[in-house]
């Protein structure tokens, strides 16, 4: 099983030697990544967390407040409203991972390689569009007075159906979700595609010979093969749903009232609108724990599903 990597001579396995060699190679390979991450990401972060135990307004004197900030978060109704909203966004964005999976499988099944290549490039191109343009576009769609949606509703003769969209406490969350239309994310799609492509072709040939239907093929062949990729994208989706806030910041300011407030935006406002850096850092800590717990639970859940099926 194990092998020496010294070139010409093939020797009997020397497990200990191999283990040691791999140990050093392994450490050497991960050292740059870990080192850079610790120094340039973790260190500033810890610097910030250290400050979450303080009441602190940026760079003047920090007042030690112990766990007071965390106690406050526990009683902060707005934070919990934000968490509830976030859970809605989280569940929706997990459900909305499905269109990407289906699209990638369809794209994979396209046999014309040249066409497939072109589609892939087309999938990538929207990445050059800055989010500002996208937000502007939706603004001109949702606007109650001159927006595209209400004008369309008027055009088809149902003016009673006109909505205030982002201005409606019930609709606003759905509007924010709908901005992800067509719910196909380039990164996720290409990761799935890469997963499907890297599987040995004999598997596909076997599947083709068995003459199974396209739906069965999807559930029994393709889907199980991309569970690893699914976990990856799931983590990406969860992290984005828990920490994201840009859309709300620009379009709704978390409103109406707090109907679209999310923890990330609340943290942003606490830091930059009320100058409560310590509190904001503490919020960040709580969000971190939430993300970690939710990610691990969902990974467990999906892995269990997988092993059962």
């Amino acid at each position: 099983m194990a092998h020496q990597s010294v070139p010409p001579i093939r020797q009997t396995p020397r497990t200990k030697n191999k283990w040691q060699r791999q140990m050093w190679v392994g450490w050497l390979f991960v050292a740059p990544a870990i080192g850079l991450n610790l120094l340039f990401d973790w260190y500033p972060m810890m610097d910030g967390i250290y400050r979450s135990f303080y009441r602190w307004d940026g760079y003047s004197t920090a007042v030690y407040v112990g766990f007071e900030n965390f106690r406050k978060i526990f009683n902060d109704t707005i934070f919990w409203t934000a968490v509830t909203n976030m859970l809605f966004f989280l569940v929706m964005s997990i459900i909305l991972m499905i269109p990407t999976i289906i699209t990638s499988v369809i794209l994979f099944r396209i046999r014309h390689m040249r066409a497939q290549y072109i589609y892939r490039v087309l999938f990538c191109i929207p990445m050059v569009v800055p989010w500002m343009v996208i937000i502007l576009m939706w603004q001109f769609m949702y606007n109650p007075q001159y927006g595209l949606f209400n004008r369309f509703i008027e055009l088809i003769g149902m003016p009673d159906m006109q909505q205030t969209w982002l201005g409606d406490s019930e609709l606003v969350k759905w509007c924010v979700i709908f901005m992800g239309f067509p719910f196909v994310t380039t990164n996720a799609a290409l990761i799935y595609l890469g997963g499907l492509k890297s599987v040995s072709e004999s598997v596909w040939e076997a599947g083709a010979l068995d003459g199974v239907g396209p739906l069965q093929k999807f559930f029994y062949l393709e889907l199980p093969l991309i569970t690893g990729q699914f976990s990856l994208n799931l983590i990406g989706t969860i992290t984005a749903a828990i920490t994201g806030y840009t859309t709300q910041l620009v379009l709704t300011k978390g409103g109406p009232g707090f109907a679209s407030m999310v923890p990330g935006l609340y943290m942003y406002f606490s830091a930059f609108k009320s100058q409560k850096y310590g509190y904001a850092s503490a919020l960040g800590m709580v969000m971190f724990v939430l993300s970690l717990v939710i990610t691990l639970l969902s990974l467990k859940f999906f892995q269990k599903e997988e092993s059962e099926s």
């Binding site: 606007n143 109650p144 007075q145 001159y146 969209w165 201005g167 409606d168 109406p256």
Partner: peptide, 21 residues
């Protein structure tokens, strides 16, 4: 104020005036 003003971003409000609405 206009219906749905809570969904109108800062940069959007002047458009309502400028388009005569």
């Amino acid at each position: 104020w206009q219906d749905g003003w809570t969904g109108t971003a800062e940069a959007d409000a002047p458009n309502l005036f400028m388009t005569g609405q």
